[in-house]
Nucleic acid binder design. Structure first.
Lengths: 154, 154
DNA sequence: TGACTTGGTCTGAAAACAAGACCCACAGTG
DNA sequence: CACTGTGGGTCTTGTTTTCAGACCAAGTCA
């Protein structure tokens, strides 16, 4: 299967990955959540080829995850900001970071802590059910085809 | 920056992506969560090159996300199962799927629904704080360097 | 005038990928 | 015994991507 065909699959995971499944895209989004907004800052922070960065940013803008807007005239300079669609990726990004905090960090612990300003604690992300509010475990979930929508996985 | 160098970065996101940031890996894991376990079944389901699949599975085994175990002798046949480390990726996988359900699904709705057996409802995943149990929004979170661990983002 | 900054493009070499042929061990069938 | 089928891969070849680094253009600064 070709990568471009993923977006057409009747599978939400495939559609998501057609947008953010690229090797660098989630790193770019991590930076975006850390308030990086400019081309050069992304480039310095990530150290990826400028051409690749420019392609990725353009794709994310096209997909509506980032928004390109001028922050000054003469000369025009642009910044990339997360849209609401982009902000909705926060749970994904954070749970991935917390996964690596748990499983890939050395004895010195994770490099960054996340502080919940509302309650004043450093926290980990927890997956909960939108209906009952309880913590969800993989075994408690059953994936079912949506009869209203056509065919296939996930 | 080279892709292989990611794993050495003092950034959990980079470390996570060194394991699952590959184009196909999250699709493989999605299948694994849907109880696909055999080489040929992955291959048929995803349609990727067998060589690439074999490399990815080997990497996931090496990283401890999947476990390769014989399910019969004479002839020996293997299956790939999620380890606890692999199961811990469920929140990430599910939140990505739910993101695409919300933002990429057509008018017919998402192709697959997730049913929480404990409460009996179809649900969406919600990011909550491990400390106070409340829903977390991006703006309520502050990322702070962990003094105990060395340098940089995450 | 020249140097610097931002936000990119362009190029050639190196790596990853797709498709499909091929391989091996074993099982079952006749 | 030969013949076919299955599971779990490997190999080859040609096409895409990616990388590193050079280059470029508009505008500002000194």
């Amino acid at each position: 299967m070709r990568w471009e065909d993923l977006a057409d699959q009747p599978c939400s995971m495939a559609r998501a990955l057609a947008v953010v499944g690229d090797r660098w895209t989630l790193m770019i989004l991590r930076d975006a959540f850390l308030k990086v907004r400019r081309f050069d800052d992304f480039q310095k922070s990530l150290g990826l080829a400028r051409r690749v960065l420019s392609e990725r940013l353009a794709l994310l803008v096209e997909e509506g995850v980032l928004e390109k807007r001028p922050y000054q005239e003469r000369p025009v300079r642009y910044e990339y900001r997360l849209t609401d669609k982009g902000l909705d990726l926060y749970p994904t990004v954070l749970s991935l970071i917390h996964w690596a905090d748990k499983h890939c960090a050395g004895p010195e612990g994770p490099p960054v802590l996340h502080h919940h300003k509302t309650c004043g604690c450093d926290f980990r992300s927890v997956l909960t059910c939108s209906e009952c509010g309880k913590k969800v475990k993989p075994r408690q979930v059953e994936a079912r085809a949506n009869i209203a929508a056509p065919r296939q996985p996930a």
